[in-house]
Design a protein around this nucleic acid. Structure first.
Lengths: 338, 338
DNA sequence: ACTGGCACTCGGCGCGGGCGAGTGCCAGTC
DNA sequence: GACTGGCACTCGCCCGCGCCGAGTGCCAGT
């Protein structure tokens, strides 16, 4: 159990280290924060904190830096999310309001997050699984070729080609379109499969094959690319990892290239409110010296996707968390409006 | 005018420097290439090449490295595009064949290019200006709200919301859809505006406002986001810029973030066959120590967009050019099929 | 429990010398 | 006249040295 003052000391160490990027010593601490005690006392506290694994020395006779465990304690108990100021909020809203379509919303969100946090931003496209169908459109591009367009309530549009086993008449297509829409419009993706299961039976024998092709393509679209896409930005901010350069930056860039890794990363974050993964808490090895702050966002109350930032473990957690949360909130609003 | 042997020397210098990343001296040159002359002679040639500005010494008493001008000569007169091997071609084709839609084609192309060249890949989405309309779809999502979906012959799908001044009936909408398609299907984007100009007049007065809104949104879509999108990948390869690290990598990352810069970069490249911009030939300052190899690609014979790579001026030009050209060719094929 | 004092550690930095790759020049040869 | 071997010279790189100072741990004193 750590005394109140020791927690204060830890907090001061984290704040100073984040600010200066240099190991912080006992003297500097007492000067910059009025802890009311002498450096010698602080030294004792630091020894105890080190003993417990919250801070460490890079070399003997250097100052201390927080460990992952130290940051964890800081985030959990010593810091509050720093809310955005009023002007900042307005700026966020204005910037996002200019978006013309979903791609644009995501692109703007990425830029915004990267700028606000000066870190690498990651934004997942609204997932399909938790979305609902707004409309399904079928277009005959050729006698035996149909384009399937799926529009979701999050504004996402997916299209697929369907090669039909037999030509399909315009009337049949219209019929199928109508019946399909009456069944699935407004429904959750997860519910769709059983809702359309018996649809082929209600058509003439000669059309059943075609109907089945269309349906199977639809179902594929629903599951296949689920949560698959995302957008990243602000990689130039990685160069501010000034310390040991190529060593840290390379694996991070590689991880960012691997969408699979990123999606898993966001996916792991359970807490819909806000998740912070610090250093080695990230399973992917290349990100062991970074922290990931992520949060869910969604058009309604419910989260349909995640967004977040990746930065050095030595980051301004309260500020970053504030920015991430604020952006998520406004993106949710935008999606709800569109 | 440079003698044949001096050109040989320049070629050897470029090849060695690209291989070793270290300034190359006269002795090493004679050992690795059988030029048939002694180091002393080569030294004289090098002095002449330096005089002409094709090579330079980083410091007195170090080897020589090619200048931008030297690379330019190398690319123009001393090297041939290195064709891909048969297995490589097959691999490219197989990899691209798996794509399910346009996004996927572009994404796969980026990955492929980055892997093949071990550099940063940039792929522009097929441009709208040179595309033709395959289909226009109108969906009533609410009484006075229409979704406009535009499908191009390059497989691109754009969608927009249209807020109508007045509710529009299902019949009117179907009518508009039919007339619109009969006029613009198969037509070039550039021709569309005048083709639809008089369309509102043929509708009842009460619907004209709505028709006009739909049309203006359509026209906006055609011009507004023209050539706007692109995808990049392989940024992790930047870490192989081992030399002077943060200095070179930062501006490059920044340039890559700025889509505008990249689009301008690709746009400048005039020659549809293949353009190589070396070092300071790039107008954007941050890319002064990189080279850009770009080429047009398209579904037919005509180029609808560009793709390319960005790498250090010290790159394997023949190999890179071969890879870029081959990928562009296969992407063109894939687009033509879909 | 806190403080001031003190001896100790060790990374960073600047200095200086040796090493070697590479050069330019020159006199000699085919 | 073109090429070659030889030679003196230049510098950047590397290594070891010693100083400096920030920071520490410990201990005796309040």
């Amino acid at each position: 159990m750590l005394s109140e003052r020791r927690l204060q000391v830890l907090r001061a160490i984290v704040q100073d280290y984040v600010g200066t990027e240099e190991p912080v010593g006992s003297k500097a601490l007492t000067e910059r924060h009025n802890l009311g005690v002498s450096p010698a006392t602080v030294r004792n506290d630091m020894a105890a904190l080190e003993e417990e694994g919250y801070i460490a020395q890079p070399h003997t006779s250097a100052g201390r830096i927080p460990t992952d465990k130290g940051y964890r304690l800081f985030v959990d108990r010593l810091a509050d999310v720093k809310p955005m100021t009023q002007p900042e909020r307005r700026a966020i809203q204005n910037f996002l309001d200019g978006a013309v379509d979903l791609d644009d919303v995501v692109a703007r969100t990425v830029r915004l997050l990267a700028q606000l946090t000066r870190q690498v931003a990651v934004v997942q496209y609204p997932s399909l699984t938790r979305s609902a169908v707004r409309h399904v459109e079928l277009l005959a591009l050729a006698p035996a070729r149909v384009m399937l367009v799926l529009i979701t309530d999050t504004g996402r549009v997916e299209q697929r080609m369907v090669d039909c086993p037999a030509p399909i008449g315009e009337n049949t297509l219209a019929d199928l379109r109508a019946r399909l829409n009456s069944r699935v419009t407004g429904r959750r993706f997860t519910d769709v499969p059983q809702l359309v299961q018996d649809l082929p039976e209600s058509f003439e024998a000669e059309d059943r094959g075609t109907v089945a092709s269309v349906l199977s393509t639809l179902l594929e679209t629903l599951v296949e690319r689920t949560e698959e896409r995302l957008m990243i930005g602000g990689t130039a901010n990685l160069t501010r990892f000034t310390h040991d350069f190529p060593l840290t930056i390379q694996p991070v860039l590689e991880a960012l290239e691997e969408q699979v890794v990123l999606l898993k990363l966001l996916g792991e974050a359970q807490d819909p409110a806000m998740t912070v993964r610090i250093g080695h808490e990230n399973e992917y090895e290349g990100l062991n010296s970074t922290s990931v702050v992520s949060v869910g966002y969604g058009s309604g109350g419910e989260a349909v996707a995640k967004l977040g930032v990746v930065g050095p473990t030595r980051m301004d957690y309260p500020g970053t968390m504030g920015a991430v949360r604020a952006v998520a909130r406004y993106v949710g609003q935008i999606l709800a409006e569109s």
